[in-house]
Nucleic acid binder design. Sequence first.
DNA 1: TTATGAAATGAATGATATTCAATACAAAAC
DNA 2: GTTTTGTATTGAATATCATTCATTTCATAA
Lengths: 212, 212
Amino acid sequence: MDAANPAAETRTERKKRRNREALIRAAYQLVAEKGIDGTTMQDITERADVGLGTAYNYFSSKDELVTAAIEQGMDELARRIRVVTDTFDDPAQVYAYGWHTVIETATTDRRWHWLMQRSEVTADAIFRCFGPYAMGDLLRARDAGRYVFDDVELVWRQAIWGAVGLCRGIGDGTVSADNLTEAVVNLLGMVGVSRDEAWEIARRPRPPLPEL
Amino acid sequence: MDAANPAAETRTERKKRRNREALIRAAYQLVAEKGIDGTTMQDITERADVGLGTAYNYFSSKDELVTAAIEQGMDELARRIRVVTDTFDDPAQVYAYGWHTVIETATTDRRWHWLMQRSEVTADAIFRCFGPYAMGDLLRARDAGRYVFDDVELVWRQAIWGAVGLCRGIGDGTVSADNLTEAVVNLLGMVGVSRDEAWEIARRPRPPLPEL
DNA sequence: TTATGAAATGAATGATATTCAATACAAAAC
DNA sequence: GTTTTGTATTGAATATCATTCATTTCATAA
C-alpha cells in the first residue's frame, strides 16, 4: 500500500491514532464511572463513536483495552508528580513525595476508585510508569548511603504492592486515611531507612500537585 | 420447624454441611487445576455431585464460592505452618518462617499457582487466616524491643501485599525465586528490623513443613 | 476513473453466571 | 402410619456480554 512515503502521516494513520485514543479515553472514563465489570464493550465503543467490532482491531480483548486505559491514567499522574519532584534535590524526598501523592490520589480522587479494582493491573502500571524514575532515585539514595537494600527491582516491586494494598484498604474503609504518612514511613523502612529519618522525610511539607 | 431440639444435628443439617463442604472442596480442586475463569459453576456442582441451582443456596455467587475455597486453602496452610512455629521461642523467627513458607508454597506448589490469581482474595485470606497470630507476634516482638512500628494492622497489611506481589512476580517469572530470603529481609525491614539482624533471622535453618 | 486491500461494522455466536417454577423430601402433626 | 407443611433441590430457561466474521466502506495508488 504505502511504498515510499516515510515522513508524512497519511489520513488512514491519523484516523487510526484517533480511534485508538478515543477508545482508551472512553474506557478510562467509563471504568472510572462504573467500574470494569459495570462497563461493557458496547458502552466503550459507543462513547468512542466507533463500531463494536472496530475495538478488536486495536485491542485483542476488553482486558487489554482496560489495561491500556489504566496505564494511561497512571502515566498522566506520573507526569504531574514529576513536575513537582523535579524541583527536589534529595532522592529520598522524591520517593516519599511520590508515594504520598500516589496513595492520596488513588484514595481521594473519585476517578481512581474503580481503577484500583484490578490490583495487578494497577501494580504493573505503577511499575512501568514510575519504575524508571523510582529505581533511579532508590539507587542514588543507596549510593549516598541513605538507603540500604540489595535488589532494586525486588524491593521496588514489594513497595508497590504494599502501597496498592494500602490503597485498597483505605478505599474499602478497613484502614484509616490518617495513616498515610505512617504508611510512607513503612515503605521507607523497607528500603532500609531508619525509622526516625523516615519520619523526618515523610513529614516534610508537600507542594500541591499541579494539573497538567 | 425445629422448636425444641438444641443439641442433636438433624439429618437436614448434616446434609447441608456435607453440601457446603463438597462445594468448597470441588471449587478448590478445580480452581487449582484450571484457574478461576477456566472453572464453571457446572464443573463445580458436577464434581460436588450437587444440582447447579443448589450451589446458589449456599453461596450467592461464583465469586463468593471461589473466595471460600481460597480461604480454606489458606487456612490449611496456616495450620501446617503453626505446627512448626509453635516450637519457636523468638517471635521474629516465627514471623520470618511464616513468610518464607507462605511465599515458597505459593510459588512452588502447583495447586497454589491459580489460587494467587485474584490477589485481593489471597491477600484478604492471609489477613484473616494468619492475622491473629502474626499481629500477636509483631506486638510481642515490638514489646521486646526488636521491632519498631506504630500501627500493627497497617504494617501487617502492607507486608501482606508486598508478599503477594512478590509471589505474583515469581509466578510469572519477572522475579527470580532466588530472591526469597532477601524478600523476607525486606519484609522485616518494614517492621523496623535493622538490615543485619533481618538477614540473621531470615537465614536461620527452616524445619520442613509437615503435612496435616 | 478504477482497482485493491486494509479498516470498519454490527448482526450473529457462544459461553456461562444466575434465576425460578416445578419437584422431592425431611420433619412435624395427626 | 398417613397427611401436612415448609424447606431444599433441581436443571431447563434466561440474560448478559465478550468475541467473531461475512459484508461493506473507504483511502490509496495505479
